[in-house]
Structures are given as structure tokens and as C-alpha cells.
Simulated assay, not measured.
Amino acid sequence: MYFQHSADIWRDFPTLVPGVLLVDGVSPEAPVRDRVAALYESADARLAAGAEGEMPEIQAWRRTFSKMGLKPTQYRCASESLLRRYRKERSLPEIHPLIDLCNAVSLAFAVPIAVFDLAKVTEHLEVRYARGTESYLTFSGETEIAPEGEVVFADAADQAHARRWTNRQSGLSSIQPGTGSALIVTEALHDTAPADVERLLETLTRELSALWTVESKPAVLSAAAPRFEF
């Protein structure tokens, strides 16, 4: 299996910095509350300095969404949506230890993190422009077809595992109690993204390793080396 961004994505978004990591032995009973609480403190410090819309990480994604023809205040990247909810409610719902941990890291760094159940992905996962044939399963069980030109995470079976580039993840490959292995993808586009994604991956690897088996070294991808094989 492999993960990559298409050449078209690299051409149109040359400042993109993706990071990837593979984790195995995932279980729904892992104790993450203390780890999550510490990461929330980092998010609190950032929000104390200004709202999420003022953060360079979020501003870069807003520019990207505008370039894709999406209204950035109507369609928000995953990290902005999390920060917005956390700022209002001062907490996030507990979903699954892996998701809770990744959400907390996303809050702390203001960078989107997507997590995919590998058992539901066919052959590969590629971030690319939709052809208008990709099937997307909503969390309510409905099937949608991603419109041509939308940025999707697609596999070899023409399944869209996320729509609108981290805005909406599919119910098909979402983390469930029976999930065993997961692919974690983080993406940033702001000026200090190379250093920030490295730090994010270091933090994520440290936290994950304390709970499960990290099956791969964290990798930062580039247009020259776009593929992560596992």
C-alpha cells in the first residue's frame, strides 16, 4: 500500500508540507485523558494570544480553500473547526483514544490531522482532484458522489475517504472500536510548516508510542519524494 499526493496537487499547492505515520495495535481502552489534557493546555495558550482565524496555520488553509472555490468561513479545515469548537466549549467529545489524541495534537499545532482505518482502504490512498466518480459514505450512511475537481482522498476502488481536503472525512474509514491499524496524515501550508510538521510528528510519535505500536518512522513528504509506502 502507499499514500501520496498527485502531481497536480503539488503543482497547484507548492507550499504543501505533508507528514505521515502508521500505527498498529490500536485499542479503544487506551488511557489518553492526561495526555490530551496536556495538549489542551498548549491550545489554551495559543487561543489566549488570539482567535483561531488569526493563526498563520489557519490563514494558509483559508487561502487554500478560497483557491479551491470554497468559502473559507463556510467550509473550514479540520483544525479550524476543532479550534472553533474548543474555544466555545472548552472541551471536545471523547470519540476513540486514537482520535481524541490526534484531535488534541491538531489543536495544539493548529494543523489538520486525518486518521484512516487501513482495513477499509483499497490498495492506496491518494490526495487528488476528483473525477466525478468517487463514492463517499457519510457518517449517517448515505452515499454521495464527489463532484469533479474537488480535492479528495481516494483509493483504488474509487472510494473517497475524505472530501474538500480534510473538511469532511468518510464514515467508511473512520476509526471504530475494532480498528487495528491506522494511517495518520497531517498537512500544512504556512511559512513555517516544514519545522512545525516535524515537531508535530515528533509529538505524535512520542504520545502514540506510549500507548500502541508505531509501525513506521514519521515521514515528511515533498514533491520530489511524494510517496509513503507501507
Score class of each variant (00 low, 15 high):
Ala130Arg: 08
Glu89Thr: 14
Phe109Pro: 05
Ala154Trp: 01
Phe139Gln: 11
Gly171Leu: 03
Thr166Glu: 04
Thr166Gln: 03
Phe116Glu: 04
Leu107Asn: 12
Asp117Pro: 00
Tyr129Leu: 07
Val152Arg: 08
Ser91Arg: 14
Ser135Gln: 14
Gly149Trp: 10
Leu118Thr: 15
Lys120Val: 01
Ile145Trp: 05
Ile95Leu: 14
Glu123His: 10
Ser91Glu: 14
Leu92Ile: 09
Ala182Gly: 12
Ser170Tyr: 06
Val152Asn: 06
Thr143Ser: 05
Gly178Asn: 14
Tyr136Arg: 05
Ser173Val: 01
Ser174Lys: 13
Val127Leu: 13
Trp165Ile: 09
Leu172Ser: 12
Ser174Pro: 00
Thr138Ala: 13
Val121Pro: 00
Arg128Trp: 03
His96Ser: 05
Asp158His: 13
Asp117Ser: 05
Pro177Gly: 12
Tyr129Val: 00
Ser173Ile: 07
Gln159Met: 07
Arg163Thr: 05
Ser91Asp: 10
Gly178Lys: 09
Pro147Ser: 12
Thr179Ser: 15
Leu92Cys: 05
Asn167Arg: 13
Asn103Thr: 06
Glu89Arg: 15
Glu89Lys: 15
Arg85Thr: 13
Asp117Lys: 01
Leu98Pro: 05
His124Val: 01
Gly141Glu: 01
Ile175Glu: 05
Glu144Ala: 09
Ser174Met: 15
Ala162Phe: 14
Ala119Gln: 13
Ala160Gly: 09
Leu118Tyr: 05
Ile99Tyr: 00
Ala162Arg: 02
Ala130Pro: 02
Tyr136Asp: 00
Glu123Asp: 14
Gly141Arg: 03
Leu98Glu: 03
Phe139Asp: 12
Glu89Tyr: 13
Glu134Pro: 06
Asp155Lys: 09
Leu125Glu: 04
Lys120Tyr: 04
Pro97Glu: 06
Thr122Gln: 12
Ala110Lys: 07
Ala162Lys: 00
Pro112Asn: 04
Arg131His: 12
Asp155Trp: 05
Glu142Ile: 08
Pro93Cys: 11
Ala146Trp: 01
Val105Glu: 02
Pro112Val: 03
Gln176Asp: 09
Glu94Gly: 00
Val111Leu: 07
Tyr136Asn: 02
Lys120His: 08
Asp158Leu: 11
Phe109Asn: 06
Pro97Ser: 10
Gln169Glu: 12
Asp155Tyr: 01
Ile145His: 09
Pro97Cys: 10
Arg131Trp: 06
His96Glu: 11
Thr143Trp: 09
Leu118Gln: 10
Arg85Ala: 13
Val121Tyr: 02
Ala110Trp: 03
Ala108Phe: 07
